[in-house]
Structure formats: structure tokens, C-alpha cells
Design a protein around this nucleic acid. Structure first.
Lengths: 153, 153
DNA sequence: TATTGTTATACTCTATAACTATA
DNA sequence: TATAGTTATAGAGTATAACAATA
């Protein structure tokens, strides 16, 4: 098929492409399943994860979550209605609003993070320790490559 | 922090957990960026990918895409309105409808797939060939582990 | 003027329940 | 009765444009 002749010019290791795509769907589904019992979508799980060690402004959240600002407003609205986060005015710039986890939000964020870690560890449990270490190095490399591409385009 | 004491009991290699989660977001964003110029969401990209070598019924699509049947109806509706797919009645069971790519859909599916492959190859280009092969094997292993867990729970 | 955040609007995605047609 | 698919409904997520308040 015409596709393969094109692809063969471009591709290094075909298994890597399909592998990374399929694994990304596996991990996303896992995150959805971890969030679901708590009525959290993947993006809400991600919000809680980001807020565990930061109190960003709405604009910073938009960058961190790769979301438009209206999207962040709605996301934080719904989390605030559930008592997971609070909006705190920034004194140094009165246009800005910082988002904090509440105590309840902290607890939920930790529970979800621990459960996700358990599930992913279960996925990698049958890998030899050597492969897990290798995978940790490779994923770190891919993240750096992604950041580099984003900054250079 | 209390979280770490819990985690240390459970975890093998912490870098793997964060690495897989972050890389899944990188790949999903990449798929969104590849689809966007063609007005395709990630789930629509996935639909085209699934249909490249299959003509499944709506029910089979629901399983393949991990979506409810009403979700599949809407998804196929929108793809059909754009002329990417067609619904074909199944003669052997007249309740069933099979979904086919149109010629235009085939072309778009191939273009999107090639572009995604290029982008992912760019991400892995700076890995030694040895690491890419290793990654291909590990991702295949993770997919099998995921399928196994799904079937045994 | 530029930036922060919100509101308004519209569309896609996703889930549940109710319905029709076929088996 | 059970299954395949659709429609109805509702809510969440995401994008663009217009707006208010602050810088």
C-alpha cells in the first residue's frame, strides 16, 4: 500500500509508534477509572495532581493544563463547588487569582495519586527491575524531547 | 509526608509511574495536534485508525473505542456528515450496521496516521536505536499486561 | 494599551434512560 | 426476551469572542 512506502522513508522503529500510542490510551483509561469512583474526570485528576505542590494563578493553570482560560474558569468553578479548591486573590497583582487545594482536596488528590501509582505499578509488575529502570529513563528522555520540540517550533 | 510512607510500601520504581503518566499526556496532545488541522478530535483520529483495517458493527466499535453505544452513534453521525464513513446494513443480522471508511476517509486516515508516526518518530529520534527497540518491546509488554488485567478482574 | 479573569455561545464528547426493530 | 441501534436529555470539556477590572 502507498502508505508503507511513505512510512518506510520516515520511520525508525514502527513498533515504537504504535506502542506509545496504545500505551497512552491504556494509561489514560486507567486514570479515568481511578477518577471515576470519585466523580473525577481525567482533567480533574490532572488538576488535583498539579495543585498538590503549587498554588498557581488561573493563567498559569491554563499553561500547565494546556487549556484555554475559559476552560480553566469552568474547571475551577466545578472543583470549587465541590469544595476541592478555593480561589484566593493575589495581593501583589489584584487582577490575578490563585487556586489552592482545600483539606478535602488534598486528601482526595493524595488518594487518587496513590491509587493511580498502585494501578500503574501493577501494570509494570511483571517487567524485570532492569526494564522498569530502563523505562523510567526512556520516559524521562521522551518528556525532555517533547519540551525541547515545543520550545523550538 | 504521609503519602510517601504509603507509597514506599507499594511502589517499585517511582520514575516509571510519573514517566508513563506524563508521556501519555504528551502522546495524547500530539494526537490532538495532528488531528486539529483536519478538525479531528483525538477520538475521531482513533475512529479513523480503527476503521483502517476493519468494518465493525456499531456494537463492536463501542467495545473498540471504550464508548457507550449512544456515544458511537453520535461519533459516526458526525463522521458520516463529513463524508468520512458510511453505514452499511449487515445482511446476516438486519439489526446490525457496519461502518466503512469512504475513499476520502481512507485518505484522511492514512494522512493522519503518517503524520502521527512522523511526530512520534521525531520524539524518539534522539534515542539510541537500542533504546527504541527496547521501548517497542516494553510497550508491547505493557499492552499485554493491561489486557490480562482487564480479563482477570 | 496589555493582561487577568469571567461570561456568552456553540459544539463535541460522554453517560443514562427510553424507544424501535430485529432475533 | 434479548440484542442492535437510535433518540432524548443532561452535564462536562473545549474553543472563540466580547467584556470588566487592573496594570
Amino acid at each position: 500500500m502507498g502508505t508503507d512506502s511513505t512510512a518506510s522513508v520516515v520511520r525508525g522503529e514502527p513498533g515504537v509508534v504504535n506502542g506509545l500510542v496504545q500505551v497512552s490510551f491504556v494509561v489514560q483509561r486507567l486514570l479515568a477509572e481511578v477518577g471515576a469512583p470519585h466523580d473525577l474526570s481525567v482533567i480533574q485528576v490532572r488538576l488535583l495532581g498539579v495543585l498538590r505542590d503549587r498554588q498557581p494563578t488561573m493563567a498559569e493553570l491554563a499553561v500547565l493544563l494546556q487549556l484555554g482560560r475559559p476552560g480553566v474558569s469552568g474547571l475551577v468553578d466545578r472543583a470549587e463547588e465541590r469544595g476541592l479548591v478555593t480561589r484566593v486573590g493575589d495581593d501583589s497583582d489584584r487582577r490575578s487569582t490563585r487556586v489552592h487545594l482545600t483539606d478535602h482536596g488534598q486528601q482526595l488528590a493524595s488518594a487518587v495519586r496513590d491509587e493511580a501509582a498502585r494501578r500503574i505499578d501493577a501494570l509494570t509488575a511483571s517487567l524485570p527491575a532492569h526494564d522498569r529502570q530502563h523505562l523510567a529513563r526512556i520516559t524521562a528522555h521522551l518528556q525532555r524531547a517533547s519540551t525541547r520540540q515545543r520550545h523550538s517550533q
